[in-house]
């Protein structure tokens, strides 16, 4: 855990995850890029509206019996409404939990070594190779980043459009989020509410 000062408002900040790329100041809402010891202002955005949720930044507990703590979240806006991605420190590693209309999916396996050359031609129902895995696209859509809070290790500036792909492979869900600057690929599994126990929070 590292203590920092918000370069915009001077509020005290804490970085809990060494892989975090952006820190959102809880006081002034400024998005600060983490570049070694330096915090660079990326922009100042409105705080996220507090929709009812099991989770909150700083909360902790267990998922499927393994401990987690929530570092931050990003919210996306799409045709069907909003969905949140919670960034977790999960069982000693990074994970991301999608919350969409009360449904939960835990993505804990980061697929860092694979790349997708062209995402635009891909469409629902299509199979393609992701590394050595054969993946079938269940859904492809566009969303806009609505905002973020806490610590984020996948960051896209609010207002930026992304392409998201929900896919399946080898009995697992695969999520791909693609913007001009970033591509994140995780695999994971759906959760039931009973799989999640939230026991503490800040």
């Amino acid at each position: 855990m590292e203590s920092r000062i918000c370069t915009s408002c001077g509020a005290p900040l804490v970085i809990r995850n060494r892989f975090s790329k952006v820190l959102v100041c809880d006081y002034c809402g400024t998005h600060l890029k983490i570049d070694g010891d330096t915090l660079t202002i990326s922009g100042r955005f409105p705080k996220l509206a507090g929709f009812p949720s099991l989770f909150s930044t700083g909360a902790s507990g267990t998922i499927l019996g393994k401990s987690f703590s929530i570092l931050g979240r990003m919210r996306y806006r799409y045709d069907g409404g909003y969905f949140d991605e919670w960034f977790l420190d999960f069982d000693g590693g990074n994970a991301w939990l999608t919350e969409d209309e009360g449904t939960y999916t835990l993505y804990s396996d980061l697929m860092e070594s694979v790349d997708i050359s062209e995402i635009e031609p891909l469409r629902a129902g299509q199979n393609f190779l992701l590394g050595e895995k054969k993946v079938m696209i269940k859904e492809k859509g566009r969303a806009v980043v609505d905002g973020g809070e806490g610590e984020l290790y996948f960051y896209v500036k609010p207002g930026t459009g992304i392409t998201y792909i929900d896919a399946v492979s080898e009995g697992k869900k695969v999520a791909i989020e693609y913007s001009d600057e970033e591509i994140e690929i995780f695999s994971g599994r759906p959760l039931m509410k009973r799989d999640i126990v939230v026991s503490g929070g800040e």
Partner: peptide
């Protein structure tokens, strides 16, 4: 209910 198959190919 939703199901995630081990393998599925709709197009090949």
């Amino acid at each position: 209910t939703d199901y995630i198959p081990e393998s599925i190919d709709l197009e090949s």
